[in-house]
Structures are given as structure tokens and as C-alpha cells.
Design a binder for these strands. Structure first.
Lengths: 341, 341
DNA sequence: GTTAGCACTCGACTCTTAAGAGTGCTAACA
DNA sequence: TGTTAGCACTCTTAAGAGTCGAGTGCTAAC
């Protein structure tokens, strides 16, 4: 049996209706809804075929049909094939140009959740194997030295070091030169024990400062490993009865709160090299345990210097995919452009 | 009518039983539970009195009684009066000494939530009216200047400034001196437009850098206003049926997610000068809208240099107050000691 | 002051019933 | 051969009736 045009039209009608109502869709509804001018009986026949093909399901005998994961998948794929949707009628999103990235991303998550009425997540950009760019030691007061470490991608880390006695300007300068000469432009792997020993020796009685700086450098470089993820719109789960029963809701909310569980999603996305931009996971396709009853739509954005991050929407399988894709694309573009202009 | 010893014993028995079960408590249960050796009929009489006094409620005729907010209040007050509970049998909490404060606090929230089975929040410490301590400009590469701003309490802010053309070492040094001379030791209020204008004039063609730094300083000083709050254990709300219905849960979760809404709580706590350490809000006493069906127990911790923060537990009114208080005290002490040893 | 007893109340649960939506199948029609 | 009308059947859902039991308030006796 083949999926001909008419069958697809009916499938589409079923899905659209189900997206709105969340209730199983009956043959009569479709008979009236579409402009095919077919009786409910004919629709019933076609529906039986669609069921046999695996695109729709019957929750129980004598209920209407609901789309299966496979059905959604077909629908989404077709939709994505269509020409890039115009984004014109969307109301302008105001991403205020805050200089603090985390504020911006928090705001982005919130906006996504508000616009779509689903739950949203935004991951901070991940950096690729960082090189050290610059180290600066400064005296803050007689007992404290501030070490500022700048890593490729302009990630900055500060550490306050405590010293037993005040350092002279000269000593500070010497240490600054020592550190920068040895370490600039190096990656984690390139900084080895031999170098560290040599530097400590040169630093003499101030070797503890060198040690402190090295620790901070290590931390600054590996900082990308604990991934920052912002979420918003948790309460939207309650808007969809199929997600809102205690057990499911509790699981979803935990997954959403324990942001580490979402990192799978981010990894999955960033790993996919030929990622065209938007990724849709339906039901069991999800890489995130505990969201098997949901659909997840994600996009990958890229800031300057190869820093990539992920934004995503989590909602019921009967999600308004078009709206969601539109929103994600829009935000993705905004983020892509952010540091490019 | 007076609340005599026997009435209080009965009230206590009602509350204790209700804490466990969450079900209205009947007279027969109390008659068996306490060692007063009173028949259910007598208990019924006393209960009628307690109800008249406002300590307990009847959800409907012919149901048992549940404690009123006033009842809880009495119970909690009496409990707090009792000698400081020993904390001995508590299993040791492992607060690994991470140097990153936010990690530590996140972990603290998680631990609280796990230990108590309620939802937990931890606010990052707030600083009091900050003075500028130190400014440092450094050249990162030919087009970028890094401004590091250190504020009293060793709060550090970094800003990357972009310049049209490379600055000489000499210019940089001059700017550094200019900024530090004018601004060090000043508060937000003390930096006025006249000063800024004077500095810009002295900076000549580099006045845009001065402007950039001033902006960053403003932000660093007011940074305490957008308060960082960490939460954990949202799913625990689902453990208590009285909080788990859709409407309530949705509201609670939103409140918990929109951390700004919790700031009331923190403010309320920090404002209270003669705060002995633990604060209990029952039902309507809460300063947080949308948590009127909950009880909230908070503690204030204090790090070095007068930096204060709040930790808290949010749960149903029938909360195990003793356990919660114990946990909060323990964590408070750990945090208090953190930078003191 | 305490208790036993009794009538009464009211929510929770179970069972039944009816309505309604929707199906599959068959037979007739174009 | 594809489409449609009709009908018996299935299954869910909502409403109603009845029962159970926990718990109360009140009264009268100890």
C-alpha cells in the first residue's frame, strides 16, 4: 500500500486537528474539516489504511485516531522541506544588548517560553579547546593580588590570591612578565610539569603565586565542561493534560531543573556536524531520558570564534511545530548576528 | 477560655499526627495516640474548645480537625523556645570546598532539598553599599582593552572594551592612573557628572574608554541588586497532595522558577536586624505572593565582611519543622564558618 | 469532669445506567 | 471500482443512586 496524496492530506488534517484539541480525531470531523468532500465512511477507510501504515493510532477501539511518532515525523519532515517560512508577521523580539551574556541568554529562554507557550532551554556557548591569551596580576591591597586570566574567545576568569606580605611593583611586574612569557598562546595540554617547575624556580619565594595562577588557568580552560543551561516556562507543562499528571510532571520538572540531564541534548546537537539549523526529536527519538512523551525542537547558534550553543523548546508531541520552528529560527538568527555586526 | 496544659497536649498530638498523614485527625485517633487516657468523647469536647480558640479547623462537618495557621504558629513558637536541638545524629554534610561560590551554593540548595524532601532555596550573599576599590586596564590584543573593576567585598567585574586603534603602554598607564586617582574609594553616589566630565576631558581622545569604564563601574556596584538565587527540589512539591493540584503546583513552580519573586523573602530576612537566625513563615504570614498555602523556614548566614545571604525551605504547612530547623541551622553554621577559619 | 451511646452528617467509593462518539462491516449505488 | 449510507457494536465518560465509615455533637448517666 502506498501513501498517496489524498492519504497525506487526511493525515495532515488529523494531525492539525489533534494539535489543536489534544483529543482523538474522528472520521466525521475530518470529513467536514477538509475540502476533499468525502464522506466520513470514505475517511474511515483511508484512516484504516493510515493506521495499517503506522502513521496513526487508536487509543482504544471506538475512539478517534491520534498521530503516531511516525506520523508526526512525516508531517515535520514535509514541513521542513517547504521553503523557508517568512518571519515577517512576527512581532519584533527585543533582545536588549546587555553586555552580560548570561542575562541575555536567560532573557532569551524566557522570551521563547512566553512566545511559544512551551518550556524553553538555552545553553551558553561552548568553546573549543581554549588557548590562554593573557594573564594580568594586580595588587588590590597589601595582602591581595588579583589574577585575571583571559582565554581565547575572551572568556575571563578572576582569582584573588592572598599573600603573606606586600609585593613591590617591581616584583609584580617581573611575575607578570614571567607568566605571560611562558604561558601565552598555550593550551591545557601544552602546559606541562616541567614548565611549571621552571617557572616556580624563577619566581623564587613567590612560587606560591605561580602555583595559584596555574590552578586558576586550569580552571578557566576547563570551565567549558560544566555547561551552563538556562530554562524557562516550566509551568507550561501544565497546559497540556497529557504531560500534567503527577508522575510525568514530576519527572519532567526534575529533568528540567537538573540541567545536567539536558546536556545530552546539547551534546547531541553540537556533535551533529551537518546540522542544518533545526533539529526535531519526536517522542522516543529524544536523547534525553524522561522526556519520551515530549517533542523537542532545537537549534544551534554560533557566535564569533566558533562558539556554539543550543536553544530548544520542549512540549507535548502535539506541538505547534511551525510556530516553534519559526521562533527558534528567529532567535537563532538574532544570536548568530549578535557579535557579527 | 484558656489554653491549659491538656489542651496544648491535644493540639500537639493533632499537629503531629497531621504532619505525618496529611489527613484530618479524628478524636478517636488522639484518644489512642496520647497517653492522657481520655476517651474520644472528652477529646471531642476539648477539640470543640480548641476550634473555638482558633487553633484548629474542620474542613467540613463530620471530618476530623486540621491545624490552623494560628495552631501551627503556636506549635512552632513552643518548639523554638526549647533548648537548641543537638545536631548529633545528622549524617555529615559534605560541602566540598569548591572555590567557586556559585557551585557551592547550588550544591547547598540541592543538599537541603534532598535532606528534607522539601523545596529549597539559597541566595548568594548580598553586599552593602559598595565602594570602588581598584580599577585596572590591560591590553589584551591590539583592538581590545580589558577593564577589571574590583569593588569592596572583592566583587570583581570584567568588561572588554573595543578600541579603534592600538593604545601605547604609556597611554594605558596614564588612563589607569587617571581612573584610579579619581574613583578609588568612592561609592555610586559620590561619582557625579562633574567628575566624569573632568575625567573625560583629561582623557582627551580616549574619553570613550573612560565612558566605557564608568558604565562598567556602575554595573559592578549595582550588581547586588539583581540577586542570585539558587533553587532545588521543585519536584518535592508533588509529594504533598495539598500542593500538587495543577493550579497550585503551577503557581508554586512559577514562583520558584522566577527567582525574582523569591527576593522578597531574602529582603525580608536581611532587613530584620534582630534576626536570631531562624525565621518561620506559616501560610499567610509569607512575604511571597503565591506561596500562601506553604510554610517557609529561612535562616540568614553571614560570610566575611558583612556579606549576608539567606537559605530557606519551602514546603507544605504540615512540614516537619524540627527536621527543617535542624538542617537549616547546620547549613547556616557551615556557611558562617566557611571564611572564618 | 468524664464517659457511653446514639442520631446525624458528609465525603469517598462502588455500581449502574445512559448518552454519545466513533468504529468496522456490509450492501447498494454511480 | 471507488464512494456512500446504514447499522450493529464498542468503549469512554458523566451522572446518579446507594452504601460505608469516619467523625461529630449532644444528652444522659456515672
Amino acid at each position: 500500500m502506498q501513501l498517496d496524496e489524498r492519504k497525506y492530506t487526511i493525515l495532515q488534517a488529523i494531525i492539525r486537528t489533534y494539535l489543536e484539541t489534544g483529543e482523538p480525531v474522528g472520521s466525521r470531523t475530518i470529513s467536514k474539516y477538509t475540502d476533499l468532500n468525502l464522506s466520513s465512511a470514505t475517511i474511515r477507510n483511508e484512516m484504516a489504511d493510515l493506521e495499517e501504515l503506522g502513521y496513526i493510532l487508536q487509543p482504544h477501539t471506538s475512539a478517534g485516531r491520534i498521530p503516531s511518532d511516525q506520523g508526526y515525523r512525516l508531517y515535520v519532515d514535509k514541513m521542513m522541506e517547504e521553503k523557508e517560512r517568512e518571519v515577517e508577521e512576527m512581532k519584533e523580539i527585543l533582545l536588549e544588548k546587555e553586555d552580560k551574556m548570561d542575562h541575555l541568554l536567560k532573557q532569551a529562554a524566557k522570551m521563547l517560553a512566553n512566545n511559544t507557550e512551551y518550556a524553553a532551554m538555552v545553553s551558553a556557548p561552548q568553546y573549543h579547546r581554549n588557548k590562554l591569551k593573557f594573564i594580568q596580576l594586580s595588587r588590590v591591597d597589601s595582602r591581595h593580588i588579583l589574577a585575571v586570566i583571559v582565554v581565547e574567545g575572551n572568556v575571563i576568569k578572576n582569582t584573588m590570591l592572598t599573600v603573606a606580605e606586600e609585593l613591590s611593583d617591581e616584583t609584580l611586574l617581573k611575575l607578570n612578565i614571567l607568566l605571560n612569557t611562558h604561558l601565552n598562546g598555550l593550551t591545557m595540554e601544552q602546559i606541562n610539569l616541567g614548565m611549571i617547575a621552571a617557572m616556580k624556580q624563577q619566581a623564587g619565594i613567590h612560587s606560591d603565586i605561580v602555583a595559584g595562577v596555574i590552578d586558576a588557568v586550569a580552571e578557566a580552560i576547563k570551565a567549558d565542561e560544566d555547561l551552563e543551561i538556562y530554562t524557562s516556562g516550566t509551568k507550561n507543562f501544565f497546559k497540556y493534560p497529557e504531560l500534567a499528571d503527577h508522575e510525568r510532571a514530576s519527572e519532567l520538572i526534575t529533568t528540567f531543573e537538573e540541567k545536567q540531564l539536558l546536556s545530552e541534548l546539547v551534546q547531541d546537537n553540537l556533535a551533529d556536524e551537518n546540522n542544518t539549523g533545526i533539529q526535531v526529536y519526536i517522542g522516543n527519538e529524544t536523547p534525553v531520558q524522561g522526556m519520551r512523551d515530549c517533542s523537542i525542537v532545537t537549534a544551534t547558534y554560533e557566535l564569533d570564534e566558533g562558539m556554539k550553543g543550543t536553544i530548544g523548546i520542549i512540549g507535548p508531541k502535539r506541538m505547534d511545530y511551525e510556530k516553534v520552528v519559526k521562533n527558534l529560527k528567529l532567535l537563532k538568527n538574532q544570536l548568530d548576528d549578535l557579535y557579527r555586526k
